[in-house]
Amino acid sequence: MRRYWRIFQEFFRTCFVEELEYRSEFLGNLLSSFFGVGIAVLTVQIFFYQTNQLGGWAYADVLILLGIFNTLQGAIDFALRPNMSRLLEHVRKGTLDYILTKPVDSMFYVSFRHLVFWRLIDILLGVGLIIYGLVQKHYIPSLADILMFSVSLFSSLVLIYSLWMMLMTTSFWVIRIDDLSFIFYSFFETTRFPIGMYRGWLRILLTYVLPAAFITNTPAVALLGKWNGVTTLLSIGIAGLFLWLSRRFWRYALRSYTSASS
C-alpha cells in the first residue's frame, strides 16, 4: 500500500512537470470550473422557482447533492478520465507491453498514470458547495454524520472507479472509439439530481442495476443526519462487489489480450 502511494506521488509529480511544460493556464482552468459550478447552481435555482421540492428534497439539500456530484466529478476528471484515451493508445500501439513487464499492478498503472491536477479545483469547489448548502440549511452535522458521510463517499469513489474501469476495459475490443467516456458521463449525469426525481423503470434501473443512488444520494443523506447503518453497509458491500467485478473483467481482458495479439 505504502509502495503504491509512493508510485502515485511519482505519477503526480511527472504530470505536474508535464503540465508545466505546456504552461497550461491556471486562470482558464479556474474560470471554467467556476463557470461549471455556477451554471449547475443556477439550474437548480430555476427548478426551485417552480417548486419547493425536487424528488422530495429541499433547495439546500439539492445544493449539497450537487456539491457531492461536483466533488466526485472532479475526482473522475483528476485521475480517471485522462487515462481512458491513453489506454486505447497503449492497446493500439502495443506499448501496453511495457506496462505489463513492470512489477506493478497493471490496473493501478493504467488508471492512475495520468493525472490532471487542475481538476482538483472542482473537488475544492464541490466541498465549498457542500458547506454552502449546510449553511443555507443551518445544519451542523454531528461527528457521526461526518463519519457516515465519509464512509459512503469513499464507497462512491470506489463504485465510480469500478464502473469507469469496466468501461475502460472494453477498449481492448472496441479500439476504434476514441473516447468512451461519454457513455460513462451520460450515466453519471443522472446522479446530479435526487434519485426520487426519476420514475418507473428508470428509477429501478438507477437504483438496482447501475447503483446511481449510492453514488451521490447516500452520502448527501448521511451528511444531513438521516443516515442509517444498513444503507451505509450496503453501499460498502456494493462498492466492494463492483470493484471485484471490475478487477475480474480487467484480468479477463488481459488474458485475451495476451493470447491474441502478436
Binding site: 509512493r6 508510485i7 511519482e10 505519477f11 511527472t14 513492470k102 512489477p103
Partner: peptide
C-alpha cells in the same frame, strides 16, 4: 524517476 519508484 518513475521507474525508480516502480522498481523500488
Amino acid at each position: 524517476l518513475v521507474n525508480k519508484a516502480i522498481y523500488e
